[in-house]
């Protein structure tokens, strides 16, 4: 609660939160607010410029781009949250285990993380998505996989410190099992940093997922995913500028929102992490 109060007084946190609130509203209320159905084809109105009927113009199937963007907010936010939840969860678990246990387990796990990190991430995500078959869920898994090491490395560093704390030593003496200590002591003590990193990573996750859709490996048509819309809009860039421009602006807004909120969170919660 204290955190929230401090945050609300921080102007950039408020700005970030404000942007995200708008996005969330758009996502939740798309069904009510959107002037058109996002998948409704109207071939006689294809590629109309922005105007009173269609604020952001129409696409090559005559669909209203503004409505599609509103529904698209659902997809992008969902991608962001799931990616971060999966990557953050698994990464924290791996990092905590490695940091707490140390020894060869630590060595092995961290080498595996090194392998993933030194792999060009977009290529890795691309190959993974191609291997699992293109779908939104698989894209989420692929992006999450690529992001695991980020969390694992950070949590491991924290776990190294936490494991020497008196209360950890005490429960070990008291006969607590490793799993119990990791879950009860190590992980909760890393939570703050995980939350900060998660907020900062959300933006990245949305960006990478959009990149995957841009190269055709994410959301499947007619889903109004923003990256996929830009991908198609690119074919019409020279004459129909609005098609690729608006979805990109919305990606930009959303990620800006997460980034400034994350920065502010970091200042408040965890001054140790520095980018």
């Amino acid at each position: 609660m204290l955190t929230l109060r401090i945050l609300s007084r921080n102007p950039s946190a408020a700005a970030g939160g404000g942007i995200l609130a708008v996005m969330v509203c758009m996502a939740l209320l798309a069904g009510v607010l959107a002037p058109y159905e996002p998948v409704e084809i109207n071939l006689s109105e294809r590629l109309q410029g922005p105007g009173a009927d269609h604020w952001f113009g129409t696409d090559e199937m005559g669909r209203d781009i503004f409505s599609r963007i509103m529904y698209g907010a659902r997809i992008s936010l969902r991608i962001g949250f799931f990616v971060v939840a999966i990557a953050g969860g698994l990464g924290a678990l791996i990092g905590a285990t490695a940091g707490y246990l140390g020894g060869w387990v630590d060595n092995l796990m961290m080498r595996v993380m090194d392998v993933i990190i030194s792999f060009p991430s977009l290529v890795l995500a691309m190959a993974l998505a191609a291997a699992m078959g293109p779908s939104l869920n698989n894209a989420i898994l692929a992006v999450a996989f690529v992001m695991i090491p980020k969390f694992a490395r950070m949590v491991r560093g924290e776990a190294l410190a936490v494991r020497e704390m008196p209360f950890v030593l005490a429960s070990r003496v008291a006969g607590a099992g490793h799993a119990w200590i990791i879950l009860r002591h190590i992980l909760p003590n890393c939570l703050n940093s995980v939350i900060v990193l998660a907020t900062l990573t959300l933006g990245d996750a949305i960006l990478i997922a959009a990149s995957l859709s841009f190269i055709g490996l994410g959301a499947q048509p007619p889903m109004p995913e923003w990256g996929a819309m830009i991908s198609v809009g690119r074919k019409f860039l020279m004459d129909q500028w609005w098609y690729a421009t608006f979805p990109g602006l919305f990606i930009l807004f959303t990620v800006v929102g997460f980034n400034i909120l994350g920065d502010a969170l970091r200042d408040v919660l965890d001054p140790r992490i520095r980018r």
Binding site: A130, G133, L217, Q220, P221
Partner: peptide, 9 residues
């Protein structure tokens, strides 16, 4: 249902 696949797949 539509499914966009990579060419080799």
């Amino acid at each position: 249902n539509l499914q966009l696949l990579a060419n080799p797949t």
